[in-house]
Design a protein around this nucleic acid. Structure first.
Lengths: 148, 148
DNA sequence: GCTAATTATGTTGATATCAACTTAATTCGT
DNA sequence: ACGAATTAAGTTGATATCAACATAATTAGC
């Protein structure tokens, strides 16, 4: 690697200011930390809150359907289910109509955890939403930056 | 938990459509997967690409400075450095001016990896950017959704 | 100058993330 | 009906993420 081939510092500055992947990762980390902190009294992380919500419906969804809803790798979801199942917040059951599949259901404890978390989510989300009022369209990257 | 206290399904739908944390996590996962896949020929993940860029400057930055730049927990960064240092893409050295701190520097191999990744980043990012042209202001959540 | 507060980082344990590979059940083509 | 292709999940290994706790160096107050 000769010096002439190295990425110039100006290019690095351009990536830092334009990379949507980086901006989104930064915002995702910052938001997760914030909700994780806020949701602590409810005993849930931000990801667990979203996961339990995905199960809060009449017909218990399959693993693949939930993974798709969360835009998450299927195997990641499998791993994320374990601590929640261990704590008795959800149950898994083989789908009688298709024995390859498994159906995910909230338990009463899971529904209670979700109910306890809702007021916290409302309050925290309102604060974050308020910060976004200042932004409009093209400023999406700026908005992501402001969240981080 | 009586049934009356459970979170209604309508509330779950509201959270799914309005939660900025979930939308950002979804977008972050999807974007990371996409860049991870694209950057494979360069031997880097999206996170490693951002990390190496953070080191591409004259004065080697400290761990804390880089963690802040990436909006990442300091200990996460420490862990992320290990595989890259093992591969010889960066080096760490105690700061002579403050022996508590460590300075992070790219090696020639690290600069070469970054240079190899740049054209891939440009191409991939251009594709994603094109998808955002359709969106404006309030549609930030929609835009995040479209990315996922 | 000396002690206390602060700062920069390391370590550990739990959880999250994904790719690659494997297993089992269903569906499809003939 | 039967073998092949497809689909749903599980398993494993590497990496990423963060909180809580611990250590060492610097700085601030007196």
């Amino acid at each position: 690697m000769s010096k002439a081939d190295a990425v110039p510092f100006e290019t690095t500055l351009f990536v830092k200011d334009h990379c949507l992947c980086l901006a989104t990762q930064r915002a995702a980390r910052a938001l997760a930390r914030r909700f994780d902190e806020a949701l602590k009294p409810a005993g849930l992380t931000s990801g667990q809150f979203s996961l339990l919500h995905a199960l809060n419906r009449e017909a218990p969804p399959s693993i693949g359907a939930v993974a798709s809803l969360l835009a998450m790798d299927r195997t990641t979801l499998t791993a994320n289910l374990k601590p929640l199942e261990r704590r008795g917040l959800l149950t898994t059951a083989v789908d009688p109509a298709d024995r390859r599949g498994r159906r995910l259901s909230l338990t009463d404890a899971g529904r209670a955890a979700l109910a306890a978390a809702m007021p916290i989510w409302r309050a925290t989300h309102a604060e974050i939403d308020a910060r976004l009022q200042a932004f409009d369209g093209e400023a999406m990257r700026s908005a992501l930056g402001a969240l981080a």
